[in-house]
């Protein structure tokens, strides 16, 4: 059994779904961040797989993935800073308890 595009796509979909599930259900803010990273990984696999199988000559997908990695690293930094501030204000990082938007 050779590995085809579909296997990569299914893996990517599974990773993405795990990520989304993590985002939706995690209580801890940092876990949400980690889940986001998993979802990113799923997307990146998607891009690399497409690039490799559909247009083997170019590296567009791989370069996109590099960009995503850098941006997600920066984003993780910012997000962690936000979580720190939330913790400072609420003394908690349980995002179920942060429901200021209700008011």
């Amino acid at each position: 059994m050779s590995i085809t595009l579909y296997h990569y796509l299914i893996l990517a979909a599974i990773l993405f779904c795990i990520g989304i599930y993590g985002i939706l259900t995690s209580k801890h803010a940092v876990r949400v961040l980690m889940s986001i990273e998993i979802a990113f990984a799923g997307v990146s696999i998607n891009l690399v797989a497409f690039s490799n199988y559909i247009t083997p000559g170019t590296l567009a997908g791989q370069i996109f993935t590099l960009f995503i990695m850098t941006v997600s690293a920066a984003e993780a930094g910012v997000a962690l800073a936000i979580i720190f501030n939330i913790y400072k204000n609420f003394r908690t990082v349980d995002i179920d308890k942060i429901d200021l938007m209700k008011r």
Partner: peptide, 8 residues
């Protein structure tokens, strides 16, 4: 209910 996750 003001919870981000529900909105998402």
């Amino acid at each position: 209910n003001g919870k981000v996750q529900h909105y998402l």
